[in-house]
Nucleic acid binder design. Structure first.
Lengths: 178, 178
DNA sequence: TACTTAGTGCCAGTCACTGACACAACCGGG
DNA sequence: CCCGGTTGTGTCAGTGACTGGCACTAAGTA
């Protein structure tokens, strides 16, 4: 389905994608609600995995500890699939319409994290704040890792949460390696 | 232009909007790049105001202190315009396509905050992390304020940053009022 | 074998958006 | 006073993403 890489997303028609898949255009739209959705297929599994990781984390952990654990876990899968995922990132990054959809997916995943935290007994307000800011730190780590894969996503993730702690304590600013 | 409220966004055609504005459909698309953009018009000013607030903040402040100041300042305008903004929220909230666009605008605003922080001499990595997580806390506060306006957005904002601090220090969880 | 269900092709229609061309209003300087 | 350029607009024709409706086929089930 990576006609997108050849001609770019905008210059690829739904009819072309369907033809490449040996199928009718109408049939294509029966499998995917729209043209963009093709690139965001695994998100449901990711959501489930994230939810599970949060819910199944050991009791007694603070919300951010739970989130860091869950993100590190899901990051393993992301790191393993980087070779396949990388060309997809490129297409998404250069196409505004796809970036919008990606952000929507992230909001959807964040909601899942909120729900999962609440299932652990975390209050609604704290769950929302923790999920939003934790997700932001996660995305920061992913972005840094995309630009500089050498240290590994896991290391970037741990560092992001450390830096966030340092930022929050109104004492000293963390050292900046970038 | 609030035909959207009467018939909903999806059931309102660009031709209808243009007609209501006493103008041709083609002319409509010369003023707005697309149908959604109509509802996100002040964003450029908001971006400028946010950038200015961050850049002009007193020297010596920590990144989160700068952000909290800037957000509190921009929140004043938001609080004042709530009566006009509220119906708009409703339309956006119930229309997935508009929520996507809103998230894209937020990403755009976050980038502006990153740039503004960097202009203060904040390192690239810290600026990105602080802007993302700070923005997340801001959005959390706005959401809480939408659901419960009584305490004022400013109070919610201060509380969000306090709670974030409490969440980050791996000691105790903040009390949850929700 | 008869009945249902899922997956597909085909057709016609709506609607967001775009490029091209033409026309009118205004604005500068000659 | 007129003229060339800029700006804002209307009109038309076209592309392409989607949608509803109908018919057909293949597979599963009683």
């Amino acid at each position: 389905m990576e006609l997108y890489r050849e001609r770019g997303f905008d210059r690829t028609t739904a009819a072309e994608i369907a033809a490449r898949a040996g199928v009718n255009e109408r049939t294509f739209f029966r499998h995917f609600p729209d043209k963009r959705e093709v690139l965001f297929d695994g998100e449901a599994e990711l959501r489930a995995a994230l939810t599970r990781a949060v819910v199944d984390a050991p009791a007694g952990l603070e919300p951010f500890e739970v989130l860091l654990r869950a993100f590190r876990e899901s990051a393993r899968g992301l790191e393993a699939s980087r070779p396949f995922a990388e060309p997809r990132w490129r297409v998404v990054a250069e196409t505004p319409a796809l970036r919008e959809r990606e952000l929507a997916k992230h909001a959807w995943l964040t909601e899942a994290v909120v729900d999962a935290l609440r299932r652990r007994g975390v209050g609604a307000g704290v769950a929302d704040l923790a999920a939003r800011t934790g997700w932001a730190a996660y995305q920061h780590a992913v972005q840094v890792w995309i630009d500089d894969p050498a240290p590994g996503l896991d290391a970037h993730l741990v560092r992001a949460f450390d830096d966030l702690r340092a930022l929050s304590s109104t004492g000293s600013s963390p050292a900046d390696g970038s």
